[in-house]
Amino acid sequence: MSVAVAKRTPDGQSAPAAEHRVWGRLIAMLGSRGWILLVLFLVLLVAASIVPDVFAPHDHEAQNLRARLLGPGESSPDGLHLLGTDSLGRDLFSRMVVGTRLTLFIAVTATLIGAGVGVLFGLLGGYFGGRTDRLLMRLGEAQTAMPMFLVAILLLSLLGPSVFILLVVLPCLVWPIFARVVRAEALRLREETFIEASIATGCSTSTILGRHLLPNVAPRILVLCVVEIGHVMLSEAGLSFLGVGVQPPDTTWGLLISEGRPLLAVAWWLTILPGVLLGISVLVLNLLGRYWEARSGAAG
């Protein structure tokens, strides 16, 4: 009577198992202290964006036509160019350091805006249900169904590229994700007795949403934020790469990749190295988010 054996599965989604397994293995590789390395990397990024001068060995805008397209490790009269120089002889490492600020700023701000909208809609939809919920979720679905990346390109090429427009377009890409996750949590929590208990206590709706629902979904939101910052970073790089994102003289990693692309055959480092930095950053954010999620899931 094998049916009698209680099969306890760890609660949670059985979702894309293969993808989960890859992340699971990566997280397992981190061990119990690996996350410190990840955090250290992020701290470096944040520090570079606050005080780039400390990290950048050269002036990122200083051109030197005699030191054009130096490979990584070569030196010019100005000194060592750790990651080489571009076609105008500007130090690539310094440009990457300086580009960190705008890259992070756009990614974080856009994610927070998207999170704000998504959390609000998710909470309202999940808690009230019914018509409010249907309306908000249809909105999210409609937007998910649209090729938002193309819409973003269209919008940016019509209105002209600017950081401001990026901060309008990029949140649109992420809010439905936040709304979906928060709504699912709110739906679950709404059925918990402690919500009924707070109604019986005399809490107003805003108190219930703000004091009881929000703090209980906050950990998931934070984790999601970390992961989504990476994704937004990637989207911004994509838009900048296509020339509809950040415009020179401002610079981001995406723009650096874009600028280096025509020279890929002669100066691979101009494209590959910013790309590697972007890739590592996205990976680190993803890993960290999932690591925290796994940890809190095990604890709760």
Binding site: T193, F194, E196, A197, A200, T201, P215, N216, G300
Partner: peptide, 18 residues
């Protein structure tokens, strides 16, 4: 509501875990 209060069946579930 403060004049009429309720004690629930599920002691853990009726308390906000945070």
């Amino acid at each position: 509501r403060h004049r009429i209060q309720m004690v629930f069946q599920d002691p853990r579930g009726s308390l906000d875990p945070r």
